[in-house]
Design a protein around this nucleic acid. Structure first.
Lengths: 114, 114
DNA sequence: CTAATATGCAACTAGGAGGTTGCATAACGC
DNA sequence: GCGTTATGCAACCTCCTAGTTGCATATTAG
């Protein structure tokens, strides 16, 4: 009962939480911040955001659940850093969509011309 | 009072609604569907989704507001299609993030080694 | 003209997301 | 040991989002 899909729909759906993680202004700023600083503690990431530490903590957990960031405990603080592999997954999925779109266009064009 | 940003944060934030649009299973399936079919009416896009036509209509509006799709009226139906330019914007932003991440890593590595 | 088709609009509901405050716990510095 | 710092956990609030149903409107077919 599976529909035929020209590119793996199930794998594509894996990136839904990843895109959702990127689809929030606070979180996208955190991504930028982590790019600049490499890795940083919650306290450090909170400064300048205008929201509380707990809010940032929640955002980081969302990002972690989507695989976008990971953390390591060091002493009394937890250091967060980007997981670049996951970013590349997202890029790859967008590439696949674009390619498929092009292919679909070409197919339609051919269909019309025949 | 603007913070210095190594890559345009304001432009980056433009893609927040775009990522949010992609961060939903129903909508990402619609993207795939539009890739396959080129352009399609609401009624057509609704079949097989398990939700009502109005739900799909709302999703399409969200996607439209983020620039991901556009529509044209033809007779009594409205045809929707992907806006590939916007997809490429998203890819470009992910590329920028990745590059910045690499640069940040290199900077940190150099700092540690010195 | 009339019936069927395709969509738009509005009101409503349920649930989740983003945010807060308050308290608990663990690790440093002295 | 003790105060300070950094985080975790839980309860709570608010609002937006995804979904529904019901009705209105426009267009096509016959």
């Amino acid at each position: 009962m599976r529909r035929a899909d020209p590119f793996a729909a199930s794998e594509m759906l894996d990136s839904v939480p990843l895109f959702a993680a990127l689809g929030d202004a606070v979180r996208l700023k955190l991504v930028v911040r982590l790019c600049e600083e490499g890795s940083a503690s919650i306290r450090r990431l909170t400064t300048g955001t205008g929201v509380t530490r707990q809010a940032i903590s929640k955002h980081l957990r969302v990002m972690q659940d989507s695989g976008l960031v990971r953390s390591t405990r060091r002493g009394r603080e937890r250091l967060w850093q980007l997981n670049q592999q996951r970013l590349q997954d997202a890029r790859r999925h967008l590439d696949l969509i674009s390619q498929q779109w092009d292919a679909g266009l070409a197919r339609l064009r051919k269909f019309v011309e025949e």
